[in-house]
């Protein structure tokens, strides 16, 4: 008689292998997600760092429960933390004026970067998850750990705000 459980165990991918596959398949997409989430004007290294931290954290917390959704949530949180951190810096140093903002054209050119940046973190996350990753409302709710109704509301309000800010400027 075959020992089924042993057979199953043999077929079970090594957790490290599964993690490696997860990394290989998800890394680049998550960096792009983080790039959108953390501010398009940022260096790509910021996005990469966020994603790597997410993977490192996932690994540290244990392989078995790790999946794409877990890491994606960690990336979203990382982006949120990054945005908050930046805001804190600027709050602490209110006198700092950056050249590029001074020199920016006066014209009210509000692009997607600034429009996204004007959303709050959850709205931004919801919008990006919906319109970049095409996640369902339920998936977005799971990722953001909010009720589906809240997720729907976040998407709706975020979209409305973007429409107000961007209008017909999106090509």
């Amino acid at each position: 008689m075959t020992d089924v459980s042993e057979h199953d165990l043999d077929d079970e991918p090594d957790p490290s292998e599964r993690f490696a596959v997860l990394f290989a398949t998800e890394y680049e997409g998550l960096v792009r997600l983080a790039y959108l989430m953390s501010g398009l004007g940022q260096s790509s290294l910021v996005a990469e760092e966020i994603v790597q931290e997410a993977f490192a954290d996932a690994y540290r917390r244990g392989l078995p429960g790790c999946n794409g959704a877990y890491v994606r949530r960690a990336v979203i949180n990382g982006c949120r933390d990054h945005t908050r951190r930046l805001a804190r810096w600027r709050q602490r140093l209110p006198k700092l004026v950056f050249a590029h903002t001074e020199a920016a054209p006066v014209a009210d050119r509000i692009d997607i970067e600034r429009a996204l940046g004007a959303l709050n973190a959850k709205q931004r996350a919801a919008v990006v998850l919906r319109y970049y990753l095409d996640l369902t409302t339920q998936e977005i709710a799971d990722t953001l750990r909010v009720p589906p109704g809240t997720a729907k509301s976040l998407i709706h309000r975020g979209l409305e705000r973007l429409r107000e800010d961007l209008g017909d400027t999106l090509s």
Partner: peptide, 8 residues
């Protein structure tokens, strides 16, 4: 919006 996000 989808197009712009993907393009970016």
């Amino acid at each position: 919006l989808r197009g712009e996000l993907r393009r970016r």
